[in-house]
């Protein structure tokens, strides 16, 4: 999510003050943007495999359910009313 104008201005003011009061620290902090920017462990491909399989399963369901029900795409089942048990 993007930062609001107020937040951007506040960050800008902090950066300005840091540059003015401690140029060495400001220079050091700038280097963070050039290397690895996060220390969090990123999900491995192995962990993401179930997500991919789930996407495939949902695609199969989207195509197969109308066919299995014998109604085709033009006639999904009538909605149950009332919608609560």
């Amino acid at each position: 999510m993007g930062l609001s104008t107020r937040e951007k201005r506040a960050l800008g003011e902090i950066a300005d003050r840091l540059h003015a009061e401690d140029p060495a620290l400001a220079h050091s902090l700038m280097s963070f943007a050039t290397g690895v920017i996060t220390s969090e462990i990123l999900p491995s491909r192995r962990r993401l495999l179930p997500v991919a399989l789930l996407g495939v399963a949902m695609a199969v369901m989207a195509v197969a359910l109308p066919v299995i029900a014998g109604t085709g795409h033009g006639a999904a089942p009538a909605a149950p009313t009332p919608p609560r048990g």
Partner: peptide, 19 residues
């Protein structure tokens, strides 16, 4: 995964007009 597929089935079961 079972819960997600179940919710997906529910969406289908809601019917075209409801969706």
């Amino acid at each position: 995964s079972v819960a997600i597929l179940f919710a997906f089935w529910m969406t289908y079961g809601a019917g075209m007009e409801a969706i």
